[in-house]
């Protein structure tokens, strides 16, 4: 069986800074990493390969340097990888991204399972996974927190919802989006790192796929960013300094009185 793992390269969110004047993101000097939540998808794919035997294909869409994310996936245990990289894709929203990735998957051919991370830490939408499934007309299992088994062309999983976990099954082919609880990502092995170093990631262009150019990029995207701004946060804080042991008592007293007054104790 073939398992496809779509990955995204994202900026290290903690290091993202804003240009206060223009309201845009400063990208220079920001480190790029593999989307942390995609590591759980890679790990589950590797575990399925170990259990049932599979060919693992990593794919990504992004600038040429996104090949680094795919190399990292190979160092963990993904067998082969393709990067969809084309200037025509710049500015694609989730609809256009899912459309392009689905076309790429169609080009790769038969597959049994597509495994995605729940969402990417930069865009934070979690939409692309279900959208790919929808375009490919396959079922989707979101928020998978536990894999049970594959039996007679059917996969059994647990799906995390607000009140607990659903036990679900889906016929194959299907698409899973996974949450952290599903697996414990392994570290790359030395052998994997050597393999990744030697691997050249093929770069696929839009005209190699059956893609309608008017459906991709900024122009093809249904949504537009109208503006971005910094969230305003401010309250008047009654601040007590209690680093000195003698100040602790009075500060805690004041807090108790404050909460009492508000009827919060």
């Amino acid at each position: 069986m073939r398992i496809i793992v779509p990955l995204k390269q994202v900026p290290e969110t903690k290091s993202v800074k804003m240009d206060e004047k223009t309201g845009t993101i400063i990208r220079e000097g920001v480190e790029s990493i593999i989307n942390p939540l995609d590591l759980y998808a890679i790990e589950l794919a590797i575990q399925l390969k170990e259990k049932y035997g599979a060919m693992l294909v990593g794919i990504s869409m992004g600038p040429p340097k996104a090949a680094d994310a795919l190399k990292e996936a190979i160092s963990m245990g993904i067998d082969e990888a393709f990067l969809l990289s084309d200037k025509a894709l710049a500015g694609s929203d989730t609809w256009s991204t899912a459309y392009a990735i689905a076309k790429m998957i169609k080009k790769i051919g038969d597959y049994s399972i597509i495994i995605c991370g729940e969402r990417a830490t930069d865009g934070d939408t979690g939409q692309v996974g279900p959208e790919i499934a929808s375009y490919l007309e396959i079922p989707v299992l979101t928020y998978v927190n536990k894999f049970i088994e594959i039996k007679e062309n059917e996969i059994f999983v647990h799906r995390q919802v607000e009140e607990g976990s659903e036990i679900l099954s889906s016929s194959l082919p299907t698409l899973l989006t996974v949450v952290k609880e599903v697996s414990e990502p392994r570290l790359p092995t030395l052998r994997g790192k050597l393999k990744a170093k030697k691997t050249i990631i093929p770069c696929v262009k839009v005209d190699e796929l059956d893609i309608a150019i008017e459906k991709i990029g900024l122009q093809g995207s249904p949504t537009r960013v109208a503006k971005i701004f910094r969230p305003k946060v401010a309250r008047e804080c009654e601040k007590h300094f209690a680093k000195d042991p003698s100040k602790i008592g009075p500060a805690v007293n004041a807090l108790a009185a404050y909460l009492n007054k508000k009827n919060l104790l």
Partner: peptide
């Protein structure tokens, strides 16, 4: 957006 560092207004 971007890990909560900014707010983005989107339209269709």
């Amino acid at each position: 957006a971007i890990g909560g560092n900014i707010m983005a207004t989107i339209k269709t």
